[in-house]
Amino acid sequence: MGRYVVRRLLQMIPVFVGATLLIFLMVNVMGDPVAGLCGERQCDPATAARLKRDLGLDKPVWQQYLTYMGKVFTGDFGTAFNGQPVTELMATAFPVTVRLTIVAILFEVVVGIALGVLTGLRRGRPVDTGVLLATLVVISVPTFVTGLLLQLLLGVAWGWIRPSVSPAAAFGELIVPGLVLASVSLAYVTRLTRTSLAENRRSDYVRTAIAKGLPPHRVITRHLLRNSLIPVVTFIGADIGALMGGAIVTERIFNIHGVGYQLYQGIVRQNTQTVVGFVTVLVLVFLIANLLVDLLYAVLDPRIRYA
């Protein structure tokens, strides 16, 4: 197990370097890193050259990348154009997005699994067909449509929620945005749970559990669910990284000042340091979340051994 973790951590290095190099090249080579510094106007050539020299942008790209990475490992992600350190932006943005992600994951776990169990045990009944149809709708409608629709109905038309989230972004305000962010994954969790449950329900060990004279609730929770939820848990685990980085649309709709919002602003304003910095951290989150999921898999299923 220990050796497996070490190997996986070592494997992360090339993935991390590759991903950050890619985003670094895209922003610095394909875009113009100083274009955003002069605001709306075009920079005059003399100023642009001076800025580039000051920022070290006249040096070869590989050297720029190494310098940047060196600084990242000392905790310096550079400064945004308004002079604010990128780490400061992260310190305000990440807690907001983490809260939003927690709300979304809770929806996936509680609602997604509950619906999956309900439909999995009532296969072919009206409730099953109904939920299945609903998940299909949720999956096929893009998030921005669901998001805007809920904002319009709940926020504007009926006034149940505030259409725009305050900068504090407390948990209470994040319920509807969290639901929107979770919606597609939630539908997948429902379907995955349903299929997995229906499949395992016919398995020999469930028949054994019934033959042992166990009460139905024990057969379902201890024998059927315990086995059926293994793929679901791994799906949800892997989804954490996707939700944190994928909240751009949701955060835009509800004006949540989290990671997605900062990334969007960074891209629109060609704010190089912000974009590269945030993406770097997201890559790390993704990698660690995936490692944890793989380790969790071995805990849930004793047949899996890592060496």
């Binding site: 060990y205 054994t208 559990a209 024998h223 315990r226 086995n227 004793p302």
Partner: peptide, 10 residues
Amino acid sequence: DALSALNPVL
């Protein structure tokens, strides 16, 4: 078949 009749995760 005891392998499939016993619960693999308990």
